[in-house]
Design a protein around this nucleic acid. Structure first.
Length: 791
RNA sequence: GGUCCUGUAGUCCAAUGGCUAAGACGGCUCGUUUACACCGAGUAGACCCAGGUUCGAUUCCUGGCAGGACCACCA
């Protein structure tokens, strides 16, 4: 094979890995390194370059750990639990959920997601050369995952950290479900601020500005700032709410801004977060007017049945008729919205299940400090979020597809009936239960858990907490959680929370925040913006290894604008690696794996250099500094190995015999093998191919990916090392008229007659007589070895 | 309003309290074409601004300015 045919190699190597089960996990081997893989939503569409980058980034880590001698637990997974699948199935199959039952619908979801996952596995994971052990596959809707989620629920209930309560919750009127604080995103919009006249009891009027006149029927108090002089006379008075005619009091609170509107603030149950705060703080009345579907109830009188938006228009119209609106002005406003549908959220009172979080803020931050974050500043995001939390975690969702909440309620005595842990997983709708007290049949809970209720237990699901306790014990806490920064407040937070509550420990020792991809202009990639780059096309054009090579250069936790040109470097590297290796193999044809009695000086030097780089790269790899490692390997391979070493030994291998030749071959063999091993986690296909092509016949291991990084057998001598570097650093550039480029290593004789080999900077020159212009602290005599002048 | 990140050549990006601030893409010049639809050598080009600490700051500190992210508020 003359030129490198990446496509053919990829196909063959992929099959080889699968057939030989190269990445199979064996629990009996050595120290374990376990990775808590983010379960992707499988989609059969194209692959976003950001996802490919993210998933490949930690896949490289898995490979690195394997070659560092760890027993890597690397379980693939899919997230097929929750809304995206539910909606997908609804739309694709045209299912009307009101006409089907939960069990049937779930079957359809499962079938559909299985199909998509299969495609995804082939098109993405295997295509990109990801080294999962497919026997360890899990999905978040699997029986085991459901069992974990439900078990964790029961355990938390027992501990008192999970409770059911009727409280204001964040509500999405579109999805008709409660939402957690983490599911709310900010959304900018322009609204009308209406200035409405209220009558005072006993005569007079006040004007109050509000953006939500539709909440007039829910008005429970008027607030002013106690320091506000112009409104001071209002304190303690009562006002009559227009159109609805109920009376509310004027009270004071520091938080009211006297400069906003007229300095008076109407508090309703519940227009926004601030209303809830004041409602709790001052124990105000409750006037709940919003139904679960976003319509108004009977408390809204003639506006009953209208959607909030319609009611707003109607109320403004009626107030106008009465001449109560003095003015209206536009206002820029940020509203919390459902992260999936962008519908502004409402706040309603409903019975929901909660997990205690506010109580544990301090402890959680402490747990966060026990974990090593890559990069470290990402911990601050976590701490910031935790400190600012205002709600306990609402875990119940009024949805159809998901993990059911395994409880029943007795309508007679209000008792909550829990199953035994042994019965899990179960769907309370499918199992009947009688109230132990009343002996009456209890009502099943029809809600499901928030998807994060399951996802927060991925370490437990991945390591088979309930199924294989022995294995779980070995693996936990896990070594690494890789994830992206946008879900620190959800996935990372909830996982740390659950682990703290259930096991009183951290879920993993390290968390690594992957690179976040932007378009070439530095903006986020979104389908809607049309600036998404698809990884499939890049892989087609530049090959998987070249793509991975690009991934290897990305630094953790930072944003990276995508530049296609960066992939060219990867492709060039592959060509160079291929050609250099092919050339080396040619020169190694008659090498039989023997070691020479004596190594030539230049070979000794090369081995020493190889050993140095080998050790250094291992350190970078241990610290997840892939980018730096990649750069140094490339530099070493390209310049030291190809440009210098190969050029120098060429002639010796052609012309010499015996030990002199053997010394070069031995060195060539071991230095190239070391290089291939070092770069193999990043470019697994080409390195495997080259390994199979030549090295496999001498090495016992069947795949380069099962080998450990090289141990170079060379004893330290005085040559090389620190002194060598120090000399280089003192080298100064001297310009001469007759400069010629030099392409050689230099043997440098020290005064003690100990010879040194140095690699000159390219700016150093020699003149026609062969003198080198270098400046050092001492004077040295210099002689060349094997200079290669090209005329 | 709070917190955090980033500011280095035309572009992307690295390292660093002192020694020639690394590399890639792109320019330009030269050389090669028996491992290398290319390879090699050379060359031009950069530390956001202002103070402070220091013998010495691109690096550390403070304050700006610019870009980005996260969070809070928004009656």
């Amino acid at each position: 094979m003359k030129h490198y045919d990446a496509k053919e190699v990829e196909e063959k190597i992929k099959k080889f890995w699968e057939k030989e089960k190269i990445y199979k996990f064996d629990s009996k081997k050595g120290k374990i390194y376990s990775i808590d893989v983010p379960p992707p939503y499988a989609s059969s569409g194209h692959l976003h370059v950001g996802h490919a980058l993210h998933y490949t980034q930690f896949e490289i880590i898995a490979r690195i750990r394997r070659q560092l001698g760890f027993n890597v637990y690397f379980a693939p997974c899919f997230d097929d639990n929750g809304l995206p699948i539910e909606k997908y199935v609804e739309e694709k199959l045209g299912i009307d959920k009101s006409k089907t039952n939960r069990a049937e619908f779930r079957k359809l979801c499962l079938k559909e997601s299985e199909k998509v996952e299969k495609i995804y596995t082939e098109r993405v994971f295997k295509k990109l050369g990801h080294s999962y052990d497919w026997n360890l596959l899990y999905t978040t809707i699997s029986t085991e995952a459901q069992k974990v989620a439900q078990t964790s629920f029961l355990k938390l209930v027992k501990k008192g950290d999970c409770y059911r309560s009727e409280e204001p919750v964040i509500w999405c009127p579109y999805h008709e479900t409660a939402l957690a604080q983490a599911e709310v995103e900010d959304f900018d919009r322009e609204v009308e601020l209406s200035y409405i006249d209220f009558d005072l009891v006993g005569g007079g009027k006040i004007n109050i500005a509000t953006t939500r006149p539709e909440f007039l029927p829910a008005c429970v108090a008027i607030f002013i700032n106690p320091k506000d002089k112009k409104n001071k006379n209002l304190i303690g008075k009562e006002v009559i709410v227009p159109l609805f005619n109920h009376k509310v009091k004027v009270i004071t609170d520091e938080s009211v801004d006297p400069e906003f509107g007229t300095g008076t603030m109407m508090v309703c149950t519940f227009g926004d977060n601030a209303d809830i705060e004041k409602w709790k703080k001052y124990k105000l009345d409750l006037r709940n007017i919003v139904n679960k579907d976003g319509t108004l109830n009977q408390k809204a009188d003639q506006y009953q049945g209208m959607k909030l938006k319609e009611a707003k228009e109607a109320i403004i119209k009626d107030l106008m008729k009465l001449g109560r609106i003095k003015k209206q002005k536009p206002l820029q406003q940020t509203v919390g919205s459902c992260w999936r549908c962008s519908t502004p959220v409402e706040y309603i009172i409903a019975k929901q299940w909660f997990i205690r979080t506010l109580k544990y803020k301090k402890e959680l931050i402490k747990r966060g400090k026990e974990i090593k974050w890559y990069p470290d500043f990402m911990r601050k995001r976590f701490e910031n979020w935790t400190e600012n939390l205002k709600w306990d975690w609402v875990i119940s969702r009024q949805r159809f597809y998901g993990v059911p909440i395994p409880v029943w309620y007795c309508e007679n005595c209000d008792k909550i009936i829990f199953p035994d842990e042994k019965e899990l997983p179960l769907d309370p709708i499918e199992k009947k239960r009688k109230c132990p007290k009343c002996k009456k049949e209890a009502v099943p809970d029809t809600d499901v858990f928030d998807t994060w209720m399951t996802s927060s237990n991925t370490p437990e699901i991945a390591s088979r907490w309930l199924e294989k306790p022995e294995l779980y014990k070995k693996i936990s806490p896990m070594s690494l959680r890789p994830q992206s920064h946008d879900i620190i407040r959800t996935w990372a937070f909830y996982t740390i929370l659950k682990s703290h509550l259930l096991f009183k420990r951290i879920p993993w020792q390290n968390i690594m925040i992957g690179t976040y991809i932007l378009d070439s202009k530095g903006k986020g990639m979104h389908k809607s913006k049309g600036n998404v780059v698809w990884a499939d096309k890049l892989i087609e054009k530049y090959d998987v290894d070249a793509f991975r090579y690009w991934v290897g250069g990305a630094s953790l936790g930072s944003d990276l604008p995508f530049d296609e040109k960066e992939l060219v470097a990867g492709k060039r590297f592959l060509t160079k690696l291929w050609n250099a290796s092919r050339f080396a193999f040619m020169n190694l044809e008659d090498y039989r794996g023997k070691k020479p009695k004596k190594l030539e000086k230049i070979d000794r030097w090369m081995l020493q250099k190889t050993k140095d780089i080998n050790e250094r790269i291992k350190k970078y790899y241990l610290d997840h500094d892939i980018a730096r490692a990649k750069k140094e390997i490339e530099n070493f391979f390209w310049h030291t190995f190809c440009d210098n070493y190969l050029e120098i030994i060429k002639k010796r291998i052609y012309n010499e015999k015996g030990d002199k030749k053997l010394s070069a071959q031995y060195t060539l063999y071991h230095s190239l093998l070391a290089i291939l091993k070092l770069i193999s986690p990043i470019t697994p296909f080409i390195t495997e191919k080259l390994y199979k092509e030549y090295f496999k016949q001498f090495e016992k291991t069947k795949s380069i990916h099962l080998t450990e990084f090289s141990k170079i057998d060379i004893k330290e001598k005085k040559e090389g090392g620190d002194l060598f570097i120090e000399i280089l650093r003192k080298v100064r550039h001297k310009k001469t008229k007759e400069k010629k480029p030099m392409n050689a290593l230099i043997k440098l004789y020290l005064p003690e007659k100990e010879s040194k080999i140095i690699e000159p900077y390219r700016q150093d020159f020699m003149n026609a007589s062969g003198a080198i212009f270098i400046k050092t602290r001492k004077e040295f005599n210099v002689e060349f070895i094997e200079t290669e002048h090209k005329k």
